[in-house]
Structures are given as C-alpha cells and as structure tokens.
Design a protein around this nucleic acid. Sequence first.
RNA 1: GGCGCUAUCGUCUAACGGUUAGGACGGAGCCCUCUCAAGGCUUAAAUAGGGGUUCGAUUCCCCUUAGCGCUACCA
Length: 475
Amino acid sequence: MTRVRFAPSPTGYLHIGGARTFIFNWLYARHQGGTVILRIDDTDVERNTQSSLDSIYEGLEWLELGWDEFYRQSDRLNLHREAAWAIFEKGLAYRDFTPASAVQENPTGSWLCNPGMRELSREESDRRTKSGESFVLRFRVPRESRPEIVVSDLVYGTVRKATSDLEDFALLRSTGIPTYHMASCADDADLRITDILRGQEHLANTFKHVLIFEALGVDVPRTAHLPLLMAPDGTKLSKRIHGPVVSVVTYRDAGFLPHAFVNFLSLLGWSPKNDREKMSLEELVELFSLDGINRANAIINFSEEEPFDPKALWLNAEHIRSLSIDEFVQRLVPYAQQAFPNSTPEKVRAVAPLIRERIRLLRDIGTVADFFFREELPPYDPAELIPKKGDAATAAQALRKAKEVFESVSAFDHGTLESALRAAAEELKLKAGQMFQPIRVAVCGRKNAPPLFETLEVLGRHTVVNRVDSALGMI
RNA sequence: GGCGCUAUCGUCUAACGGUUAGGACGGAGCCCUCUCAAGGCUUAAAUAGGGGUUCGAUUCCCCUUAGCGCUACCA
C-alpha cells in the first residue's frame, strides 16, 4: 500500500513550491488509492513560528485536497532519539566533542570528519560524556567498506555518489535534538512511508538518508525528486524578493478556484504527454504518473505588471467557465461581499451568467460588475456617450428614444427590450451600435460591458430610466 | 573550491535515433458581433556551443558554457 508524506517545516509561510510538492504527493497517492500523510517537520525549535504553521494549514485547506493522517515531529522526539542511539549502539555513529565554534573554522575544502573524534574509544567517549562535555552525534560514513552509494530515483534515474565525498553528518545536535536527517528518516521508517516525493534540493541528501535507513535496518523508501519552481529571474522563489505572488493565500485572495490552481501547479514540471492542459481534479488523478515528471526546473512566469502567470489566469478562467451557475455563484458570493458589502446572493446570482465568461479571477467581479451593485454610477466622461460616426445630438436622440422604450415596454426582459430597441434604432435610422453605445454607457458608465439587453433586464426599469435621465442631463 | 543535477519557441511542455521539431499560454492578424468577452481560423517564435558514435542525433557519449542544488549542531 502506497504511503506518501508531505513534510513542511513551519519556518515560513506555505509557498507555491511547497504547495506543488503537496499536490504531486496527493495526486500520486490518490492515483493508486494510497494514503496521504501531513507531517509537520518542526524540529528546528529556534525558527519555528506559529504564524508559519497557520499559513501552512490555511494554504493546504484552501486547496481542498485534504489528507489522511497527521503528525508533528515535535511529538515524536523520543522516537527519533532512540533511533539515533540505536545507530550509535551498532557502532555506526559516534560522539563528536568538537565545540561548535571550532568546526566553523574550516570554510574551504571539503570537510569530512574530525578524525580524533571519529576514532575515540567507547570508553573515552563515555567518560567525556559523564564529565559533562557536550557533543553532537555523527554518522560514521563507511568510506572503506562502501565506495559509493547508488540511488535509483523514480525521476532522476540512477544517481551515485562516492562516500569519500560524503561528510560525517550530524544525527543529534549538542542540545540532544535530532537533526532534520535523523528525524525525517526515523519518521519515514516508523510511518512506513513507501514513496518520498520531494523537491530536488533533497536529491543530494538522499545518499545520507540511504545510510540512515540501512543503519535502522529498514527498507529504503522509493524516492522521486521534483524539479524546483523558480522565479522568472532564475533565482529561487522568495517572498522578500518576489513579493506575495509566491504565497499560496495570495492566489486564494485573488479569486483562483482551488482546483484551477492545482491544475496550474500540476503542469509545472509534469505533463500528461497528450497535450491536455485543462483538467479537472478527477482527470488529474487519473492521468498522473511519475513518468511525466521532467528534470529541469520550471519557471513560474510573473512580473511587476502581471503578478500572476498568464497561463494560471487562463486556466482559472477555463475552470470558471466550466462551473455550473450554482457552483459559480457559491464561489463568487464571498468576493462580491468583499467588494460590495451590501450585495445579496440573489443579486450575484442574477449577475453571474453575465460575467462568467468575462472574468479570469473571482475578484474581478469588483471591477467588471460594479455598476450592477452600486446605487450611483461612478463619474464617467460624457464624451463616451457619443457613438462612432455621431455627435452629441445623435446620443441625445438615441437616449431619448430609448427612454421612451424603457417606459413603455410591457415587460422589462431582454427579448422584449432587444426587439423594441432594434425597432427604435431603425426608426431613427441609426445603426445598432450607434443606438446601443449611448445606452450602454448611460447605464454601465463605460463602453465595455456585458451584453446590453441582459444587462438592462438585471438592472431593472427603475435604475435604467434613472441612469438614462442623468446621462441626458450630462449631454 | 569539491560533489551532484539540469539545458527544446518569451513561459509551460511534446517528440521507442528517422516529424515540415507538435501543443498550450502570451503576442500579431482575420472572422463572428450591440461593446467587452467567449469561440473559430491564420501567423511569428525553439533543439545553448563544440566535438564524437551512427546511413541518420532534439534524442546516445565527451568537452565547454550557463543555471540550480548539496557541501551546518537549517530544513
């Protein structure tokens, strides 16, 4: 049975690279009916923050994917320590009493170990411990018996490293707290993780992990390393340098649909190889395979002017268009509330069909549909009322005629309005566009808006007549 | 510095050693049309450089270059 884990450490907000790692784990597990584990790797007490932890939950929950089991490494410290000491008892690790300050004095060249410490007898080691000296527990890399370590990565293939290039890494800090490598492997072993999908930055760590797993006497989990997500400048994503676009909640707040966002991230470093781009969650689960993961880092394309990757925007618009009106309204209401506090779900529902094909982000309702929700139209340039190949007189004529129609028409619905207004245009010998533009600007406050007749219907006779009146007053 | 990984249009990517190097986003143009969208059609745009191997290389090997990662008592 497949068991995967996503193991973020709460030392920063959840960024999109982390989200993608989670998504790949989730897709991989769901594809084969496996188990998804969320494990908080919080062994670095100094740098952990509650706000980071909150950000991880917030981001993960928004994705609407869920997980099956949950653990926190800080609850499991004893397990990690016991595992470390078990390795020590097997003679595969040793105490290093070198003070932390002294270790730092070797910046150049490749440091492998402190030979004197590595060779310390058990008696001597025990004696110094008893006398209260502090130490770090280091893995004794078997450079003589094991010339190289070979990893068969599910994505990168066979990767090898000479043990003569691998330093005696730490298992336990001088505080007794396990290091990342120790805690991670001990937990992976204990939680019976079968497949580790994680960022490529860990590829080089995998050699150490193989050694730990072997020392623990457990099967080495399969690994699949994922290419990294990079900023357009080729550097790694950083909130400080690249701003809020690297944070998952930014996408939520802008009005991405969670699964559209999942769709977008899934396409960064993975391809179904059949030219599919827009996929539902179900399709992603069905199609996902490690074969489609490539090895080169992917750049997420954003800029100052356009903070979201254009493809993400396009995909979101695609997902929005394939929502039913009910689902769309449900997703839209919070954003409508945000932009127009007095908006009602009923009003949103009336507007929804008119904007579904016109917005890329749910937040766009605030700019695209404002004239539906505001009592007063924001000021606009009266010149906008004047149609092409016409003058102020044309506009006034069209508006006066339109007002007559609005006041006299029996039913204020788009079908009736359309035929009445088209007839009116003909009567005035105006082209459709010349007739409709003044009306559109009068009721919407701008030239670009949803189809006119449906818009009029939603606005209602009263509002429409009022707005035409005030337009007439401006001309 | 050492070690490891990577390199196809601007971006995401496809191509069992044989394709006019395909698709998508974005760009440009046209069509549709009451505006804006949506939709349809067309178009520009790539195999980092150099050596091999091969009848034939985007694909395999080597070198160079560039980028990324690891080299902590961070994860």
